[in-house]
C-alpha cells in the first residue's frame, strides 16, 4: 500500500510542471494587458510611461524569460505581487482561501451526508415518501441554476423575512465563529442543493443496482437482519462510484464556486480569480490556477487511494 501511494504522489510532480507551463503560456497569450487596465479610459498616458510601467512589472522581457523568473520565484516561496492592487499574492491567497474553504467544506459535508443518506434510503424504500422527497430535491437541484436559487434564497430569507444577512462573510461585530455562522447559512445551503441532487441520484442508482446483485440474496439467505444487509453488504459496494463524485468535488475547497461567491459577495478565491481575470492581473491568475490544478491532481491521487482501500480487487492489482 505504501509503495502504491508513493508512486502516485511522485507522478504528480512532472504533471504539475506541465500544468504550470500550460497555465503560464495560455494566459499570457491572451490579450489582457494589466497595464492598460490600470489606466482609466479617460486618462492620457504617453507611450514611454506605459513602457516604463511595463518594465516595472517585468512585462517587457520575452515570455520564456518571464516564465523562468516566475517558476524560480515560486520555488523559492515568492508568489509575486498583484499588479492591480500591489498586495502580495501569497497574502491574497492566505486571506481568501479560508473563506472559500469553510464554505465549500460545509457544503461538501452537508451535501454528502444528505445526498447519500437520501439516495440510499430512496433505493431501499422505493416509491415510498422518502423516494418522492428525494426525487423532488433531485429535480430541483439539477434544473434550477445555482445563481437563481441563491437569489431566491436571499429574497426570501434575507430580505422578506430578515432572518439572515444578504451577503458578505463578516461584519465588525463578529467575535467568535458562531457570530459569523449566520453568514454561512445561505451560501452553504445554495451550494449544497445542486451537489445533493447528483449524489442522491448516483447513490440511489448505485444502491439499487447493488441490491439486485446475487450476493445480497446470499446475505439475506444467511438470515441476517435487513439492516446488516444494507449497511455491511450493500453500502460498501454501492459507495464506490459515489466516492468518485465526492473526491472530484474537493477542488471546490480550494477553487471555490464562482457563482456562489458572486451571488453572496463571498470574499473567497473565486472572487479574486474573476477580478484578476478581468483585469489581466497575471500573478494572481497564475498562482490561483496552479493551486487549483494541484488540488485536482491531489484529488485524483486521493481517489485512487480510497478506491484501493474500499475495493480489494484494485489494491491487489487485479481488474
Amino acid at each position: 500500500m505504501g509503495k502504491f501511494i508513493l508512486k502516485k504522489v511522485l507522478m504528480m510532480i512532472p504533471m504539475l510542471f506541465i500544468v504550470s507551463l500550460l497555465v503560464f503560456f495560455a494566459i499570457r497569450t491572451t490579450k489582457a494587458d494589466p497595464v492598460t487596465y490600470l489606466i482609466p479610459a479617460d486618462v492620457v498616458i504617453s507611450e514611454e510611461n506605459m513602457e516604463a510601467l511595463r518594465a516595472r512589472y517585468g512585462l517587457d522581457a520575452p515570455l520564456y524569460v518571464q516564465y523562468f523568473r516566475w517558476i524560480g520565484n515560486l520555488l523559492r516561496g515568492d508568489f509575486g505581487k498583484s499588479i492591480v492592487g500591489g498586495t502580495s499574492v501569497a497574502a491574497i491567497v492566505a486571506r481568501s482561501l479560508p473563506a472559500t474553504f469553510e464554505l465549500a467544506f460545509g457544503a461538501l459535508i452537508i451535501s454528502s451526508v444528505i445526498g447519500i443518506t437520501l439516495g440510499v434510503l430512496s433505493a431501499i424504500h422505493q416509491n415510498g415518501i422518502i423516494d418522492y422527497v428525494g426525487r423532488f430535491i433531485a429535480v430541483l437541484g439539477t434544473s434550477m441554476p445555482q445563481f437563481f436559487f441563491g437569489i431566491i434564497m436571499i429574497q426570501i430569507f434575507a430580505i422578506k423575512l430578515g432572518w439572515l444577512p444578504v451577503g458578505g462573510r463578516t461584519d465588525p461585530s463578529v467575535v467568535t465563529f458562531w457570530d459569523r455562522a449566520k453568514y454561512l447559512v445561505l451560501p452553504t445551503l445554495t451550494m449544497s442543493i445542486a451537489m445533493i441532487s447528483t449524489l442522491l441520484k448516483y447513490s440511489r442508482n448505485s444502491m439499487l443496482e447493488v441490491l439486485n446483485r446475487d450476493y445480497i440474496k446470499t446475505a439475506r439467505m444467511k438470515g441476517i437482519s435487513e439492516r446488516r444487509v444494507y449497511i455491511t453488504h450493500a453500502l460498501r459496494n454501492a459507495l464506490r462510484p459515489v466516492m468518485v463524485i465526492i473526491i472530484f468535488r474537493l477542488p471546490l475547497l480550494i477553487g471555490g464556486s464562482v457563482v456562489i461567491e458572486s451571488v453572496f459577495s463571498w470574499p473567497g478565491i473565486s472572487t479574486q480569480i474573476v477580478g484578476a481575470t478581468t483585469s489581466g492581473d497575471y500573478p494572481v491568475i497564475m498562482v490561483t490556477t496552479l493551486l487549483i490544478a494541484a488540488t485536482i491532481l491531489v484529488s485524483s491521487v486521493l481517489l485512487d487511494i480510497i478506491t484501493a482501500l474500499l475495493d480489494p480487487r484494485v489494491r491487489l492489482g487485479k481488474e
Partner: peptide, 11 residues
Amino acid sequence: FQDPMSSLNPV
C-alpha cells in the same frame, strides 16, 4: 444460487 461468480460479496 446459480452464479457463483456473483454470489459472494467481492469486498
